[in-house]
Nucleic acid binder design. Structure first.
Length: 947
RNA sequence: GCGGGGGUAAUCAAGCCCGGCCAACGAUGCGAGACUUAAGAUCUCGUCCUGCAGAGGUCCGAGGGUUCGAAUCCCUCCCCCCGCACCA
């Protein structure tokens, strides 16, 4: 029988027995779940990691007597499926070949032009794969999201009305990267260029001219307004004149276009040549000083407003441009500029910053040898260098009015806010790099003004979310800082889209609810989804959810209002209260900053305190062969492919062995290749050994029994912390090593101990390799299924530590013997082992006491020991052995008599192992030609090898 | 830049919070031996350097420091990974 036969057999058995269909019942409940996968394809190895870890926990908790619920569902919300279906419909070869690789025959391909077909097709595939993985899932509760599932649709609608009633969903404006052709925001994945780019906020400074119109200059550094000396304008550019928000602004034509998209009232009126503006004067904001307009070549009409305010003290561009114009000052006459006035323009120091003199821009231009305003790249570098230190370490100088003495970091926001309030400035948004939509249209920034938001920026909501987090268990605990940071950092989340599958926003049907936003509290839906199937669709209404999830109203009343049967309503309420709150949700670490945090927010926004989530587990991203899995790297693997190659048990074991914590665990194919044989061998061993053996009760049987207890305790400790790699090592690899030792020591094993061992090993290993363990369990007389069996509790205090320590003493001694025999070489006639004399045990007690009291400093310990008359009597041998005792502190907790009787009892075994007589003495008891006996220390016997 | 996680012997990877049983768990790989007709599987031993007595030396990204004692604590620096959103 091959491992795949075994896997199929037990998967069928679990399904037939409905082994994992969870109902309220005996034992404490444990509800764990995972984010449902998006059904646009097959699962990959990364899914396998997260789902395996969840299944490990589910199976472990069952072994510990918990009534475990592990449900699973499918996510279809959002645009990718719609987009991909569109590509299939248009016959795009790339998309079609992706589907072909997932096993879709060409004849089926046309059907994938319809998004609905994806939703019909993939959930079944995903479920089949999870079942093949051995997932212990209650499949009755599965569902699909979006309006394709009216009951889920109603649930999401209820959730949003509920949040809105608490004023947590609000309408607002927001800058987004926008495709003018598609008429929608352009997410990172919808871009062929400019991934990661986001709208950058510029402060638009307004400079009033004598005729009442404004020259407007965009800046990223509003705090430098105190150093403004002039404006730069390109004489060869035609600037637009436009009415903006009721004022007359002059800016580049493209800037006016942008402003029009950004919720400004814009009315274009005409143009003005840059050269006509040179030499005029305008009043600079904040400093309220008249400054001249000077010509430059470095301004870019497509960047900002095409007009630049000049701060030559801190902006290298401005400094160099100013030097340029002063050098060619006579030429400035042709703009009608007064050369003396130009010469009179001087940089004004405004920021005090570590490592820089009063004029950083001048300094860096001189240091880098920048000569001209046309050295664009070097000027950019210079700008970054100044900004880095200036922003984080700089302080505003005394000439900066009420901002004097303020750190630049703070002053920047304060100055901007003040100018916005006084009307001297406005805002505009711009992309710092080009972004191109998949439809090949360059993106712009648009202010969307009727967008709906989940108000994650709301202080009161944040406070509740923090409270929830503080009460949660996190695995690993080191992820807590990340969560805390995210909760603080989250701002209002735009929760609606115009496109894609999903649920319509109940009160504003123009919008669909976005895919992360419809997935925040659906774990509650699992508790009732199978019961809800029996309720008529039209009865699934807010009153029903209000009652089931919030306890509003009496069941009879809700029944009358909705038409749902009373007993169904009551059953749902009971089920929800039984399973909720969820105990654990497990995902990849990438979901910390969105989904898992949203999950906290929406729970505290909807449910009462007692129903908030209790725990999150996060894991890294799977590496294959040490590299991040990707199609381009050639190491991408679907879960199905991995199952085909190795089978479920091996795959699971290999995933568990990959590593714990937030690091990316490595999938080691070599380990996987060697694991199938190992499992088969173990199954054969268990079947072969069960029921055989002696009934003699020997010390070594007590040892192995104690090891079983200790292993079980450690195993549980690791599983409780989701340290599955460590649990696998302890509960399997270490225990297998101990078994080999036991068999070597015992010869014929003890029947009762072996029965105990086989049962425990099967149970512990079943967390990782459930199929082969069911097989082993059933063939070694286990009752029922191992998946539903109970692992006994171990009281750590009851473990026989003496037996373990005594055996460790023997193992250490054997290592020493091997080393000595190996070193001296040749034939060995006999081995003599000497345990330490009584007085050394006395000294050991003194040493231990001294260390416990005052640390391990030799002088102090020695003094303490020599204060004892009995020790002093032993004279000059004492310092040496005290030093050795300090160096060689052992953790074994054994007495003199225990050491001696253990070694005496094992002399025969040692003789057999080393193939020569082994005699055990107490120091001084026997001949000792090489004077080795005196080296004996308590728990570190001396050795004399006779050649 | 900000926030988070890391850098350990051929590889993967424990230990670090709570300093000493740490030449540093374990697995994989590699080497030797046993078993076997052989291969495989399995078992034993070994796998930083030196050593004919259980030891010594060097070592846990680099450099300093604290301590009787540091992979573990403190400081500085270097490098890698993840996230910084409106998207699954």
């Amino acid at each position: 029988m091959t491992s795949s036969d075994i896997e199929r057999r037990w998967q069928r058995a679990w399904a037939e027995a409905r082994a994992f269909e969870a109902e309220p019942g005996d034992g404490p409940k444990y509800f764990l779940n995972v984010p449902y996968p998006y059904v646009n394809g097959l699962l990959h190895l990364g899914h396998a990691l997260t789902y395996s870890r969840t299944d490990f926990m589910a199976r472990y908790k069952r072994l510990r007597g918990f009534n475990v619920l592990f449900p699973f569902a499918f996510h279809a919300t959002g645009t990718p499926i719609v987009a991909a279906a569109g590509r299939v419909a248009r016959g795009e070869e790339r998309q079609i070949s992706i589907l072909r690789q997932m096993g879709i025959p060409d004849a089926e391909m046309p059907r994938f032009g319809d998004p609905q077909h994806w939703v019909d097709h993939f959930p079944g595939e995903v479920r089949a794969d999870i079942q093949r993985l051995g997932g212990s899932v209650d499949w009755r509760r599965s569902f699909i999201t979006t309006s394709l599932n009216p009951r889920y649709d109603a649930f999401i609608g209820w959730q949003f009305r509920r949040l809105r009633a608490r004023d947590l969903v609000r309408r607002g404006r927001h800058p987004v990267v926008w495709c003018p052709k598609d008429g929608s925001p352009v997410g990172d994945h919808d871009r062929i260029q400019g991934e990661g780019e986001m709208p950058q906020e510029f402060t638009v400074l307004k400079f009033r001219m004598d005729d009442g119109s404004f020259l407007v200059a965009a800046t990223l550094r509003p705090e430098t307004v105190f150093g403004q000396t002039n404006l730069w304008i390109d004489p060869d550019v035609d600037y637009a004149v436009a009415e903006v928000d009721g004022e007359t602004w002059i800016a580049s034509a493209s800037a006016v276009e942008k402003l029009a998209e950004q919720a400004h009232a814009v009315n274009r009126k005409g143009t003005v040549r840059g050269s006509d503006l040179i030499g005029r004067e305008a009043v600079a904001p904040m400093i309220r000083r008249r400054i001249p307009v000077l010509p430059s070549t470095f301004t870019d009409p497509d960047k900002g407003t095409g007009i630049v305010t000049s701060v030559p003290s801190d902006a290298p561009d401005d400094w160099i441009a100013l030097q340029d114009i002063k050098r060619g000052v006579e030429g400035a006459r042709r703009w009608g500029l007064d050369p003396d006035a130009v010469r009179g323009v001087e940089a004004i120091p405004i920021i005090e910053s570590g490592g820089w003199g009063p004029l950083p821009a001048k300094e860096i231009c001189e240091r880098m040898g920048i000569r001209s305003q046309d050295e664009r790249d070097r000027l950019l570098e210079a700008k970054h260098e100044i900004y880095k230190t200036g922003f984080y370490t700089g302080v505003m100088k005394e000439n900066c009015g009420e901002y004097a003495g303020m750190p630049v970091e703070v002053a920047k926001e304060a100055i901007k806010a003040a100018m916005l309030a006084s009307g001297e400035a406005s805002l505009m948004y711009e992309l710092s790099n080009r972004v191109v939509c998949r439809c090949l249209t360059p993106s712009i920034v648009k202010i969307v003004s009727d967008q709906w938001f989940l108000a994650y920026g709301d202080a009161g909501w944040k406070a509740l979310a923090r409270e929830c987090l503080a009460g949660m268990d996190l695995y690993p605990e080191v992820s807590r800082k990340q969560f805390e940071h995210v909760l603080g950092w989250l701002r209002d989340w735009a929760c609606t889209r115009e496109l894609g599958l999903g649920t319509r926003l109940p009160w504003d049907g123009k919008w669909m609810i976005e895919s992360l936003s419809d997935s925040t509290i659906y774990m509650a839906f699992y508790t009732i989804s199978h019961l809800l199937d029996d309720v008529p669709e039209e009865a699934v209404r807010d009153e029903l959810f209000d009652h089931v999830f919030l306890g509003v109203g009496a069941a009879e009343k809700v029944s009358r209002a909705t038409g749902a049967p009373v007993d169904a309503i009551e059953a749902m309420r009971r089920s929800f209260l039984h399973w909720y709150p969820m105990d654990l949700r497990i995902s990849g670490k990438d979901l910390i900053q969105n989904h898992l945090s949203f999950c906290i927010f929406n729970h505290v926004g909807v449910f009462d305190r007692g129903l908030w989530p209790r725990g999150f587990g996060v894991n890294g991203w799977i590496l294959v062969g040490g590299a991040k899995m990707s199609k381009s790297a050639g190491n991408f693997m679907t879960m199905r492919a991995a199952l085909d190659r190795w089978g479920a048990d091996v795959l699971r074991l290999t995933l568990a062995n990959g590593g714990d914590g937030l690091d990316d665990p490595n999938f080691d194919a070599e380990f996987a290749d060697s694991t199938d044989d190992r499992l088969a061998a173990w199954l054969a061993f268990a079947v072969e050994t069960m029921g055989k053996g002696t009934d003699a009760e020997r010390p070594i049987d007590a040892w192995f029994s104690a090891v079983l207890d200790a292993t079980l305790a450690d195993f549980c400790g690791h599983c409780d912390s989701m340290e599955f790699r460590a649990a696998l090592k302890r509960g399997y690899f270490d225990l297998q090593r101990d078994l080999r030792w036991y068999l070597r020591r015992a010869g014929e094993p003890d029947r009762a101990v072996m029965e105990r061992f086989i049962a425990f090993q099967t149970q512990m290993l079943s967390v990782f390799a459930p199929h082969v363990c069911e097989e082993a369990w059933s063939r070694t007389g286990g009752k029922g299924m191992v998946s539903l069996s109970r692992l006994p509790d171990v009281d750590p205090a009851s473990i026989d530590r003496k037996a373990i320590d005594a055996e460790s003493l023997l193992i250490d001694l054997m290592e020493d013997l091997r080393e000595v025999i190996g070193l001296i070489g040749g034939d060995v006639r006999a081995v003599h082992v000497f345990t330490a004399a009584d007085w050394k045990w006395h000294v050991l007690a003194l040493v231990r006491a001294a260390i416990a009291e005052g640390g391990a400093r030799f002088d102090d310990v020695m003094k303490a020991v020599m204060a004892d008359p009995d020790a002093r009597r032993m004279g000059k041998a004492v310092p040496r052995i005290v030093q050795r005792m300090i160096d060689l502190r052992t953790s074994y907790d054994l007495t003199v008599d225990e050491e001696r009787s253990k070694l005496a009892a094992e002399a025969a075994f040692l003789s057999a192992e080393f193939g020569c007589p082994v005699r055990v003495w107490t120091e001084g008891e026997s001949e000792d030609p090489m004077g080795k006996a005196k080296q004996a220390l308590p728990l570190k016997p001396a050795i004399y090898v006779e050649k």
